[in-house]
């Protein structure tokens, strides 16, 4: 008995409360899923096994072709989130690295902001045709101004 207790206490109270919490969370979710699967009724109907499309019979495959815009957003996310990670590392050590570190971070953030401004200027963050048209008109006006 003493050996088991020694083994348990070696890990400390924080470990056990966290472990129990995690197990309990998964248990609650599993109980909800399994419980409703066992308790729920079963029924059949003619049109229920079709994907919901507001009552219209589906005319094309469900896997739609997606706007390329979403891939672009995902790529920006990867770029900016990785850069954010470096800033997390700076945030915990801000007092230790002093002004030298601050200046380096300022340069880093300046580059980050410059790329953000660039993305906004080339229209990578535009979602509506209205914004695109306005931008195209401005670029055309600039080109006309240069050629004169």
């Amino acid at each position: 008995m003493d050996a088991i207790v020694a083994l348990i206490t070696r890990l400390g109270p924080e470990f056990w409360s966290t472990a129990l919490y995690v197990v309990a969370v998964f248990a609650i979710c599993a109980i909800m899923l399994i419980g409703s699967a066992l308790l729920g009724g079963k029924s059949q109907a003619r049109a229920r096994n079709e994907p919901f499309e507001s009552g219209v019979v589906s005319a094309s495959p469900e896997r739609l072709r997606l706007s390329a815009k979403f891939y672009l957003v995902a790529m920006f996310f990867v770029i900016f989130d990785v850069e954010a990670l470096f800033l997390y590392a700076y945030a915990v050590s801000a007092k230790e690295v002093g002004w030298m570190g601050w200046i380096e971070v300022a340069v880093f953030i300046f580059i980050l902001t410059a790329s953000l401004v660039y993305l906004a200027r080339i229209g990578a963050l535009d979602w509506t045709p209205h914004q695109k048209k306005r931008r195209a008109a401005r670029i055309a006006a600039q080109a006309a101004g240069k050629s004169e």
Partner: peptide, 27 residues
């Protein structure tokens, strides 16, 4: 996983929106 058009569009929108807001949430 729903394999339905509305679900796919909703999930897609939500993904793009949530990752956009995550970039600055930590910052």
């Amino acid at each position: 996983a729903s394999n339905s058009k509305y679900s796919l569009l909703g999930g897609l929108r939500s993904t793009a929106q949530t990752i956009s807001y995550e970039v600055f949430m930590g910052l």
